[in-house]
Design a binder for these strands. Structure first.
Length: 585
RNA sequence: GGUGUGGUAGUUCAGUUUGGUUAGAAUAUCGGCCUGUCACGCCGAGGGUCGCGGGUUCAAGUCCCGUCCACACCGCCA
């Protein structure tokens, strides 16, 4: 037996017990006459003590132990004369009488501490060392507990966890697929699922009316801090339900998780906001409602005063930053630079300082008198001491720039408290999105999303106006999940494919399996999927999902630890009947 | 595909604006001293392809061009 206890286990009650422990040398403090060693395992840290007077040979040996050596020790638990109340085992130490080095360690390339000196790249390359740090351990423990909580909650609600295949087929629409060549079927490829979408719908047809799965999904698109090529979803589907049934069920799940994991009790119902409301008031479809500072259109108030920028703009909108009227020239310039960044894309920024004395000072005083500016302030509900920030231009770009500006101000003013959770449902998404490049409509959610019944007739006349039975769960400005009521009728599904520009044969070839299933009694159904990595990182208070994934990939989709993706043997290519076309020099 | 930031000791960074002596700090490592430390302390030492390639110059970490890598973002992500 390697050990009798773990390094987080022994307490003052265990004094005088003879124990053995195994773990890693976290740090040693060599005082000459005696040496202390912190021994670490998954469960904690226990201090070992070696004394020259008691056993000089053993103590000498202990002095030579380096960081991250794996050792096994035995000794007697003793009460410390100087207690360390900062750690759970700080009242005791082990007076060692024997130890073995199970494995020595080279000096690690970075320190294994909460505040490590290692940069991201190095931590990724030696991920197994990074994961030894207790902050990373906490993240993975949180992830585990959250997964358990999901399984418990949904199982109690009669959901069945059913696995779906990973080798499936590529379909048009949506993200790029990762593909896997088939050796037994030369020239043909499997695709990895972007989500188990069609399979869970087929499970509904099969009568498994409540399905869930914590499942890997794959999308071959460019990455971000919150996007990995492979990521995990809490994927669900329910039959014989309407939108409210799904929202209620997953609102329950979310509240339960917040309560049991974070100790955050939310008693009232999550607010529901339409997609168009979200755009008008927040400038995007995933509003962070931890703070107000909503967008206000003031086009009507500003036109026709001879200020060309406003007169020629499709949309003029503003936000009100509370208590910022004392902003210096430098601070306003910094905000102007912020909105003029290419990613934001505004041409400039107009400000109005609502001075504490009730007067107004703006960058457009030449065109607007005090009364006009007072009118703007009143529209935005601004008080003396506030600062109005105004952007103008074409509507969609200006809304999104105002949204970015609002978030920037929220960050600056400290309004984004990570311990507050502000969830809401965004509903009534458009069914379709026009794409200018390919001159056709695309499904905003996916091609199986049901239009709202009252909008179905618009499918022929004005497809862009059709609203979908689709919904997103947004928490603190992060899109945590989304779903929809699906089409369960063959004719409507065919009509949908037609609107998306699929020829009937094409639709049949790509999605015939689903439409065939709809011929045999498909129940009304719908579902939702939560981004599990995002949910965990939100609960952990992190901005990147990489720290809640044991072995993530970098910005370019590479795993720098195992160095993948990588070339494969010529022999293997041959077997797969694949030839690599060399990139042009 | 694009925009921005960065790449200097094992590591994290300063130094680059304005080219000029032997490229610094912290931390880690190694050696010495130290019997109650817990981020131990004190003394000392070693440690550099300034990402890579080219150019300008008497002289390049510093200026110019190219390139690679990392990170953040835009496009993209049903």
């Amino acid at each position: 037996m390697y050990r009798t206890h773990t390094c987080g286990q022994l307490k003052i009650e265990d004094v005088d017990k003879m124990v053995s422990l195994a773990g890693w040398v976290q740090r040693s403090r060599d005082l000459g006459g005696m040496t202390f060693i912190d021994l670490r395992d998954r469960y904690g840290i226990t201090q070992l003590v070696f004394n020259m007077e008691t056993d000089s040979a053993l103590c000498e040996k202990a002095r030579k132990l380096g960081r991250e050596f794996v050792i096994r020790i035995s000794g007697k638990v003793a009460e410390r004369s100087n207690k360390n109340l900062k750690i759970p085992t700080g009242e005791i130490e082990i007076i060692c009488n024997k130890f073995d080095i199970l494995n020595a360690s080279e000096v690690p390339p970075f320190t294994i501490e909460d505040e490590t000196d290692g940069g991201d790249e190095l931590r990724m390359k030696y991920r197994y060392l990074d994961l030894r740090r207790s902050v990373m351990k906490k993240n993975l423990e949180l992830r585990h507990r959250m997964a358990q909580e999901v399984r418990n909650y949904l199982s109690k609600q009669n959901f069945l966890e059913i696995e779906t295949p990973v080798l499936i087929k590529s379909t048009p629409e949506g993200a790029r697929d990762f593909v896997v060549p088939s050796r037994m079927n030369p020239g043909q490829f499997y695709a990895l699922p972007q989500s188990p979408q069609t399979f869970k719908q087929l499970l509904m047809v099969a009568g498994y009316d409540r399905y869930f799965q914590i499942v890997k999904c794959f999308r071959d698109e460019d990455l971000r801090a919150d996007r990995q090529p492979e990521f995990t979803q809490i994927d669900c589907e329910m039959a014989f339900v309407e939108q409210d049934d799904i929202l209620d069920t997953f609102e329950g799940l979310t509240k339960n998780m917040l309560s049991n994991i974070k100790g955050v009790e939310i008693t009232e119902a999550f607010p529901r906001m339409s997609y168009s409301e979200a755009l008008e008031n927040y400038g995007n479809d995933k509003p962070d409602i931890r703070f107000e500072m909503t967008l206000h259109e003031i086009s009507g108030l500003v036109k026709g005063k001879g200020f060309e920028v406003f007169d020629s703009a499709e949309y003029v909108g503003a936000i009100c930053a509370e208590s910022c009227s004392e902003y210096s020239r430098k601070q306003v310039d910094a905000l102007t630079d912020f909105v003029k960044k290419p990613q934001i894309g505004a041409k400039g920024l107009v400000y109005v300082k609502c001075n504490p004395d009730g007067s107004y000072k703006s960058s457009v005083d030449k065109f607007f008198d005090q009364d006009a500016l007072a009118g703007w302030a009143s529209e935005l509900g601004a008080k003396p001491g506030d600062l109005l920030l105004v952007l103008a231009g074409d509507k969609s770009r200006t809304l999104s720039a105002l949204s970015e500006l609002r978030l920037e101000m929220g960050r600056t003013l400290g309004l984004m408290d990570k311990t507050i959770f502000a969830p809401l449902w965004v509903v009534d998404f458009p069914l379709l999105e026009w794409d200018e490049d390919s001159r056709r409509f695309y499904a905003m959610h996916h091609p199986f999303t049901s239009p709202r019944p009252e909008d179905i007739e618009l499918l022929d006349s004005d497809p862009g106006k059709v609203r979908a039975n689709a919904y997103d769960l947004v928490i603190n400005g992060v899109e945590i999940g989304g779903g929809s009521i699906r089409i369960h009728d063959k004719a409507l599904q065919q009509k949908m494919f037609k609107t998306l520009g699929f020829a009937p044969e094409e639709a049949e070839a790509q999605f015939g399996f689903l439409m065939n299933a709809f011929r045999f009694g498909a129940p009304p159904h719908g579902g939702i999927a939560f981004g599990f990595d995002r949910l965990v990182s939100l609960f952990a208070g992190l901005d990147s999902i990489r720290d809640v994934i044991a072995f993530p990939k970098n910005n370019s989709g590479r795993d720098v630890m195992i160095d993948s993706p990588a070339k494969i043997e010529e022999e293997l290519l041959k077997e797969l009947r694949l030839r690599i076309e060399q990139a042009k020099a």
